[in-house]
Design a protein around this nucleic acid. Structure first.
Length: 769
DNA sequence: CGCTTGTTTGTTTTT
DNA sequence: CAAACAAGCG
């Protein structure tokens, strides 16, 4: 399953058998059935959350084959994530067996890579080109900036990468970028983009965006190649269509112009990749792009209880510019969504941990529980807590396995064995482990390489034959090159795992970590072992390298009894009986930068993310927010997310964390605040600061839909000015009691508490004694 | 010249 | 709390 792209069966002539009855159709509802049976022409399926989208997709695929309408190799099925591709492949495989093999089923990027490898020479690449990850990309851009005399401090490579990525997502080659676009480095962005592409070409490398962009160029410049693919892909299926960007859209449109049989499935309310160039507009334009297209709506939700669905619908209803669907369910009632307010991130982890244990004791399966966070940094507190109380868990996504330092290093060694001209990899490991080939030597290699217009590796080979290097460096370099030559000789006789073991040991890389006495060294060694183990699944080194370039390791869950922790983005397409949604605080969720960078559009995307989160739940949904959160080493106070207030009062139950704050929290509680009809609000003592803030107009204007965000951000800051405190002032704090202010630092106070000792706290939560 | 040590800096989401 | 970066040591 690692390589879903075998071309097996391409010449097989026999059409599939054509049974007369198709029992799988009987279990579909009428619109689902229509979506499955409308095989010809353009079809857009608007599938709300939990309406059986995956089922429709897989059944349709099966139906195409079973009716003899298409043979496996005539089908192109595209997804966004590897996880989705794998799931589709598995499910179709269960129904029709090995006929999946011949299908082109995979992510946009994986299929793009496959197309490019076949026709690389038409684009000035060799078919063994390397695919750079964003780390490599940024290194390369940094070199480029330095070479151009642009200060990487003032113009961060990271930002340039973002700009270039944006262009690529829009399908723009350097010559099509409008002059002076972007403003990067005083309008030099476009030139840098052009130079970057040239550099990639000489390196025989592509980045992620190129996997699509270069395909488009290929199709445009080689009509015969395009025609071949158009002939081949008679039936095209696209999952998560709402997340396509312009490049993907162009790519699809070119391919679909042949047979014009294209079926796209999507949900505008679940479009959460706008930051990656996704254009919800694509889904809105569908009917005009494919005249005569049939639009089918799936609105019956089979997943969630009425309560969960009601909460989700109420939140998403605050978005404008929706296609609009009315989801309904047969599943009656259900538990209300629980909203929990806690003091800080650690308490949040404790509370959720307790809840998980309690549910588990009642017989709920851990594998049916998930914690969905906005950003990966939120994961840590849960991991810490679960380790402490012994709850088994798994993290999906998160820090990417293949991007960890030690894995990346090891991979670079292997890449150079396979592709010596990979300069980026070479530079990374030439002095790792330290072997005395430092900056000066590398600079010399660079000069030699540039002079002779060849790769660093080849330049090194030439250089060790001369007297230019100092003897010590020369010998070391010679030894390294000899090592590589030796590994390269045996690479085809060993399987990848054996080769990796050999390279890691003989290069001294393993030894480097064995000697390292820092506390994380053992983990790194473990990871290396894990990597070697994983390589056993791959037939060739090339297959392994392709796999890690395109697939992130941690994206699939095993079925063991574990709680899952992942980002909201990673959770799309999944479902669980119980879902925990922590960190619903302004600035965390909706994320501050989403609002800053894209204003209302950003806010609406965040809201769709909230919608995705809630709709993952079948039975139970817990939403929590913390009053304080640790950011790096300082404490920041937060107020509940506006999304909390958008929850409908009658589908929500508020739980106060008793003990600390008393049990006074009630929906629509005793607070002086007015609440808008139908929305829900509550009081908890620690929310008093928030309360005060809101009474001063924060809520009235601040949460208004569509309002420009700057004003709001400034309002939030007034939280810090709730009350000024002086050094040595006597104060009272809800949790820690009485104390004396030892230091004032903006809104952060260092207080010597009489009972609790010295603590850093936020001024908003302290009252004068 | 290369390596160790301290300092600063910055975390959305992913193929 | 990391990793990237700058300054001093051998």
């Amino acid at each position: 399953m690692d390589d879903p792209f075998d071309l097996a069966g391409a010449e097989e002539p026999a059409p599939a058998p054509q049974p007369q009855s198709f029992p799988y159709l009987d279990s579909l509802n009428p619109p689902q059935r229509q979506a499955v049976e409308t095989l010809e022409g353009a079809v857009l399926v608007l599938a709300g959350a939990g309406t059986g989208k995956t089922r429709v997709l897989t059944t349709r695929l099966v139906h195409l084959l079973n009716t003899g309408t298409a043979r496996p190799w005539e089908v192109l099925a595209v997804t966004f994530t590897n996880k989705a591709a794998r799931e589709m492949s598995d499910r179709v495989g269960q129904l029709i067996g090995n006929r999946v093999e011949g299908m082109w089923l995979g992510t946009f990027h994986a299929i793009g890579a496959r197309i490019l490898r076949r026709h690389a020479e038409l684009l000035g690449l060799r078919s063994d080109f390397t695919i750079l990850d964003d780390d490599d990309q940024q290194r390369l851009l940094k070199q480029l900036l330095e070479a151009e005399g642009i200060d990487p401090k003032r113009w961060p490579p990271r930002q340039l990468a973002g700009v270039i990525d944006g262009w690529k997502n829009k399908g723009l080659m350097p010559d099509r970028v409008p002059e002076g676009d972007s403003g990067f480095a005083d309008g030099r962005g476009r030139d840098l983009y052009r130079m970057y592409q040239e550099r990639l070409q000489t390196l025989n490398a592509v980045d992620f965006g190129d996997l699509l962009l270069l395909c488009i160029r290929l199709f445009q410049t080689a009509p015969d190649v395009l025609a071949e693919f158009q002939r081949r892909f008679r039936y095209i299926l696209v999952d998560e269509y709402q997340d396509t960007n312009v490049a993907q859209y162009l790519w699809l449109r070119l391919l679909a112009q042949g047979a014009k049989n294209i079926c796209c499935v999507g949900d505008d309310d679940q479009s959460i990749y706008g930051w990656r160039g996704a254009e919800v507009g694509n889904i809105l334009k569908f009917e005009s792009d494919f005249p005569g297209a049939k639009v089918i709506r799936l609105e019956q939700n089979y997943r969630s209880t009425a309560a969960v669905l009601k909460a989700a619908s109420a939140v998403i209803a605050n978005n404008e510019g929706r296609l609009g669907k009315t989801l309904w369910t047969d599943i009656p009632g259900g538990e209300k969504v629980t909203v929990i307010g806690v003091w800080d991130g650690e308490e949040e982890a404790r509370t959720i941990g307790d809840e998980i244990e309690s549910l588990h004791r009642k017989g709920e399966r851990l594998s049916e529980m998930a914690i969905l966070v906005r950003a990966t940094f939120q994961m840590r507190s849960f991991e810490d807590r679960f380790i402490e109380i012994g709850v088994p868990y798994q993290v999906l996504g998160g820090v990417r396995f293949y991007q960890r330092q030690e894995i990346k290093d090891a991979t670079c060694y292997l890449q150079i064995v396979a592709q010596p001209d990979n300069d980026i990899a070479f530079e990374r490991i030439v002095n790792t482990p330290k072997r005395g080939l430092g900056d000066a030597t590398v600079q010399m290699l660079h000069r030699a390489a540039r002079g002779a217009r060849q790769s660093l590796y080849r330049a090194a080979e030439a250089l060790v034959e001369t007297e230019e290097l100092k003897p010590k460096a020369r010998n070391t370099l010679k030894r390294l090159l000899d090592d590589f030559a030796r590994w390269r000789q045996v690479k085809d006789d060993l399987d990848p795992a054996e080769l990796a073991g050999m390279v890691l040991d003989e290069s001294g890389y393993t030894e480097m970590w064995q000697r390292d006495k820092s506390p994380n060294a053992p983990t790194k060694l473990e990871n290396l072992k894990e990597m070697v183990l994983a390589m056993e699944d791959h037939e060739t080194l090339g297959a392994y390298l392709e796999h890690i370039a395109l697939v992130q390791a941690n994206d699939s869950s095993d079925d063991t009894e574990k709680v899952s922790i992942m980002t909201l983005h990673a959770a799309k397409g999944l479902e669980f009986d119980t879902v925990f949604l922590p960190g619903w605080e302004e600035e965390v969720f909706p994320h501050r930068r989403a609002l800053e960078e894209t204003g209302n559009a950003g806010l609406e995307e965040e809201r769709r993310l909230a919608y995705v989160g809630i709709t993952r739940a079948r039975q139970r949904c817990f939403i929590s927010h913390a009053a304080n959160r640790r950011v790096f080493n300082e404490w920041r106070s937060g107020i509940p997310s506006r999304f909390v207030e958008e929850l409908p009062a009658d589908a929500v139950e508020v739980r106060a964390e008793t003990g600390l704050y008393g049990a006074s929290a009630q929906p629509g509680g005793a607070g002086s605040r007015q609440q808008s009809p139908g929305s829900f609000a509550y009081d908890a003592p620690w929310l008093q600061a928030t309360q005060r803030l809101k009474e001063r107009g924060y809520r009235a204007g601040g949460y208004a839909r569509g309002k420009v965000i700057e004003g709001e951000a400034r309002e939030v800051r007034t939280l810090e000015n709730v009350r000024k405190f002086q050094k040595d002032e006597r104060v009272f704090h809800q949790k820690f009691g009485y104390g004396l202010v030892a230091r004032v630092d903006g809104n952060h106070l260092l207080i010597d508490f009489e009972k609790a000792g010295q603590k850093k706290v936020v001024a908003a939560f302290v009252d004068p004694a």
